[in-house]
């Protein structure tokens, strides 16, 4: 039976990891928690006993700095161990601060932004050529969409008619140095994806039921168009003092903040 991927439990794991490793990027992980939860709990096909099952659906975390949210899911799947969580960033440990393809369940090595969509397009193209019925989900950040290859990948995906590909934008409205509007205004992502010939839906990125309904609607529409889900999210979602505070891209938890975060998430 699949684990439950309950969002507050996932966030607690993120907080524990970040505190154990004195790690940053908490805000970036929190904004995608419901997205990865929906993917692992309902949307994706995978073999619990084999992360490399050739028939799996692919999850490409292109915004690799959100990886603690995925690690929390991988821990629930049993693909990474409790000691990986408690020993995060300790000397000789195996989980890095950015998505890494050597970790079971991580498809790409990202963090240098703008790589994942292209690899995801290749995976989706390979799957469609094999006619194996596999889907590929790529999570990109809205800030990441500053990168040119993202738009190259969108052109290619539409040209290759990859309706087994879904680009999920974590649209939290922030990037490292400010809001996306301040740094490099994106305008309407919905309009941009539509113009690139994607089927696109917008959704509240923290409403699990709405996310799943939107994903279902997109992926059951087999019309030769790649899919885009623009998820409106809150950077730092789930912990009061982090929500929409961009400093939690870079800040580290102190002991007081750690205890408060766990309390708010229903832990300690």
């Amino acid at each position: 039976m699949k684990p439950l991927f309950q969002p507050s439990a996932l966030r607690r794991t993120v907080v524990e990891m970040a505190y154990a490793g004195n790690a940053v990027h908490l805000g970036c992980a929190f904004s995608i928690v419901e997205l990865v939860s929906a993917l692992y709990a309902r949307q994706m096909r995978y073999d619990l006993s084999d992360p490399d099952d050739p028939g799996r659906d692919y999850l490409v975390l292109s915004k690799g700095h959100g990886v603690m949210a995925q690690y929390a899911c991988l821990h629930q799947l049993g693909w990474i161990e409790r000691q990986d969580i408690d020993g995060y960033f300790h000397d000789g440990s195996r989980l890095k601060g950015l998505s890494d393809a050597h970790v079971p369940g991580c498809e790409v090595t990202s963090g240098s932004l703008g790589h994942g969509l292209s690899v995801g397009v290749g995976l989706a193209l390979g799957a469609s050529r094999r006619k194996a019925g596999q889907n590929c989900y790529v999570i990109v950040g809205d800030g990441e969409m500053n990168e040119g290859p993202v738009w190259e990948g969108m052109l290619f995906a539409a040209h290759a008619k990859l309706d087994n590909l879904m680009v999920i934008v974590d649209a939290n409205g922030f990037q490292a140095m400010g809001t996306t509007d301040e740094v490099m205004a994106l305008g309407s992502l919905r309009a941009k994806f539509s113009a690139f010939d994607f089927d696109v839906l917008e959704v509240d990125g923290h409403d699990l039921a709405a996310i799943s309904a939107a994903m279902d609607q997109l992926m059951t529409t087999k019309n030769g168009k790649p899919k885009a889900l623009v998820a409106k999210t809150v950077k730092g979602k789930g912990v009061s003092y982090m929500e929409n505070i961009n400093a939690w891209h870079y800040s580290r938890l102190n002991a007081v903040q750690y205890e408060q975060a766990l309390r708010e998430l229903g832990g300690a």
Binding site: L123, E152, F156, H159
Partner: peptide, 21 residues
């Protein structure tokens, strides 16, 4: 023909290789 978009082309090639090509 992956178009005049070399960065994407190499990423796509990586994905295809991962998918067994």
């Amino acid at each position: 023909n992956a178009g005049i978009a070399e960065q994407n082309m190499v990423g796509v090639a990586a994905g295809l290789a991962k998918a067994g090509f």
